[in-house]
Amino acid sequence: MATSASNRGTLSRHPGRFQVTTVVSDEADTARPTRYHREQARSIITHNQSPDLHFDSSINPYRGCEHGCIYCFARPNHAYVDLSPGQDFEAEIFCKDNAAEVLRDTLRKPGYRCRPLVIGTATDPYQPVERERLITREILQVLAECRHPFSLITKSALVLRDLDLIAPMAVEGRASVAVSVTTLDNRLKNQLEPRASGGRERLKTVRELARAGVPVTVLVAPLIPFINDQELEDIVEQVAAAGARSAGYVALRLPHEVGPLWEEWLQRHYPERAERVMSALKEMHGGASYDSRWHHRQRGQGPMAELLARRFQVACQRHGLAPRESFTLDSSAFRPPGLAGQMHLWEA
């Protein structure tokens, strides 16, 4: 299955660091269609032990993301399947169509221990193909049936489609949503995140979620010196007015192939700022364009990093937004799949 193309985040099929084949094509990269591949997942929950993350269990219904965000830290994952972290990442999308079935099997295993699942930690669970594929919705149906707590991370207004599943769980303290708001300037949005929802749509999404009783966190991510950091205070003010309860931010990260892709993008769109932007990023990462150390990779260090942190803290305090990690979801009511008809036995 393929869709027609317009707007791509990257300019080229930048090779992955493990690439053993080279693709030669006369087709213009910007005219390249998106292709969707059926992937049979053998497992669906990913675990991590990273001390600087607020979750340890996550689900990503898709590999690759058509939103095309140039800065996406998940781009290098396509290198593991001999594809480009450049345009292949946004044009070759792998869909885990059996995700709900695998999740159901996982949750009914005797040794399964319930803890909140975060959906969309690498790629967006509500990218365009979700409208037809419904993988994320099927996952939510399983979690709602089992009363399993979850959080969603997205930059898409499509999340509102699933309010019928999210809102009842949220009212019971078992669901929350994080909405990423990178910029409210649609011109910049179209350059940074060409196929994602616009900034105003995301504010509307925050408003509708909050109105339905869903706890909403806004992620101002990534913050990029001299590109979008001037919007920091305005974004915080507007998401607070829309009903967000908490907020967090992440500074731009450039792991592996993301670095050269970013610099290529920067030279195309903001050549007059490129040197200044890269100088600020290197200052934040000890002289390199990226520092992968825990507790440093998401915020950086030095004067620029401290300034961004202080500005963000002051803005959140002014508008009454709590820190991002402030929500606690309830795991106590979880019941494995297949026990729905026996709920009275558990609750007696």
Rank of each mutant, 00 (worst) to 15 (best):
residue 219 L to R: 04
residue 221 A to S: 15
residue 221 A to L: 04
residue 222 P to N: 12
residue 223 L to H: 05
residue 224 I to D: 04
residue 225 P to D: 03
residue 229 D to E: 15
residue 230 Q to S: 15
residue 233 E to Q: 11
residue 235 I to S: 01
residue 235 I to G: 00
residue 237 E to W: 02
residue 237 E to F: 07
residue 238 Q to L: 09
residue 243 G to V: 08
residue 244 A to C: 12
residue 244 A to P: 13
residue 252 L to R: 01
residue 253 R to N: 03
residue 253 R to I: 01
residue 255 P to G: 01
residue 260 P to V: 11
residue 261 L to A: 05
residue 262 W to F: 15
residue 262 W to G: 04
residue 264 E to S: 12
residue 265 W to G: 04
residue 266 L to W: 13
residue 267 Q to D: 13
residue 269 H to I: 03
residue 270 Y to H: 15
residue 278 M to P: 07
residue 279 S to N: 14
residue 285 H to D: 02
residue 287 G to T: 07
residue 288 A to L: 09
residue 289 S to A: 15
residue 290 Y to M: 04
residue 293 R to W: 05
residue 294 W to C: 07
residue 294 W to E: 09
residue 296 H to P: 01
residue 298 Q to R: 13
residue 298 Q to E: 14
residue 299 R to I: 10
residue 299 R to P: 00
residue 300 G to L: 05
residue 302 G to V: 03
residue 302 G to L: 01
residue 307 L to A: 11
residue 308 L to D: 02
residue 309 A to M: 01
residue 310 R to S: 14
residue 312 F to G: 03
residue 312 F to E: 01
residue 313 Q to S: 14
residue 318 R to G: 10
residue 320 G to L: 08
residue 321 L to W: 07
residue 321 L to M: 07
residue 323 P to L: 04
residue 327 F to A: 03
residue 327 F to Q: 06
residue 327 F to N: 04
residue 333 A to P: 02
